[in-house]
Design a protein around this nucleic acid. Sequence first.
DNA 1: TAGATTGTTAATCGATTAACAATC
DNA 2: TAGATTGTTAATCGATTAACAATC
Lengths: 189, 189
Amino acid sequence: MEEGVERISSNDLSKQMKVTASQIRQDLNNFGGFGQQGYGYNVKYLYTEIGKILGLDIDHKMIIIGAGNLGQALANYAAFEKRGFILEGLFDVNPRLAGVTIRGVEIRMMDELKEFVQKNDIEIAALTIPKAKAIEVADLLVENGVKAIWNFAHTDLDLQEDVIVENVHLSESLMQLSYNITRYREEHK
Amino acid sequence: MEEGVERISSNDLSKQMKVTASQIRQDLNNFGGFGQQGYGYNVKYLYTEIGKILGLDIDHKMIIIGAGNLGQALANYAAFEKRGFILEGLFDVNPRLAGVTIRGVEIRMMDELKEFVQKNDIEIAALTIPKAKAIEVADLLVENGVKAIWNFAHTDLDLQEDVIVENVHLSESLMQLSYNITRYREEHK
DNA sequence: TAGATTGTTAATCGATTAACAATC
DNA sequence: TAGATTGTTAATCGATTAACAATC
């Protein structure tokens, strides 16, 4: 779309994405028929439809718990807003951060969390706090209506099954990298 | 191991990990036989062996390019050292950061990068810089001996196939979460 | 020796790929 | 109408699960 391409075939997509054309057609058809025989897929239309599948056509109110380096990094990442993720607040325990704003969003203290979540109908909470506090904060969030947790804490959360949890465990990602280095070395020695 | 458990059966592991016992045995046996009939798996031994498979028994020299919030968050995460990932340096373009240290590691300017990588035999580089610079910096790193890139930039790197790339695309993770919210809603409406 | 539990083979299941009729 | 390319069915492949003989 950025390159101004108007239509694309599953075959061309296949080359760019390094998956088979068959799989692209099969997968897209799980969600509906977005193409047209003899024509291919209209890029703009496909983009919109995939956005709908992913829920990017709807706004999601979000807060970040933990305004340390990682929390601030997330808050500064403007592209989230573009995708419908609206940052409503940041929370931390550090009183030095009270009232500081990042991209216009205020950092609040943890004792305000409960009321804030209820009043502002927060849907998603990003958890960038230490392991020790993560489980209890997650419980509090869920009790007060949060539907999904984006979990950066180095622990697994065991929440009721109607709560969506998306884990980002950076140490696992680094171990995956390390495994690939090791495997590559063994295959080439 | 943290709970002082000495031995464990594939069946008990299965319950904790939410995969079948069969799969645990099948998967472990891809890498060798780590258990003993009638006994199960020795927890400490299994931990060590999995560490070896992942390459955690060997030290990996690492640098971080980009000392913004995300780069600093990574640098502050001490648990990496424990797993053998040794942070040797941080790099940034911002002259205000020159000479600042994080956990004893100095932030250097980008013009020192090439020489530093060569002299210090850097194996892994974490890339926490904007998209626009990522591709060119990745090329420079690879030219000077870096074997693996931990890529946080919002772009895919197309490097020679002997370079290991591990992508952490946070926006994809957030879209996955959004998809799960959407899917859950559709299943329960 | 009896019981437990692995390592491994065989059976099943699901996901990927190939093929092609439908249709723009 | 001819060519292109989808949507979809059928074939293949690989991964997961079940079963059980080996053995601690």
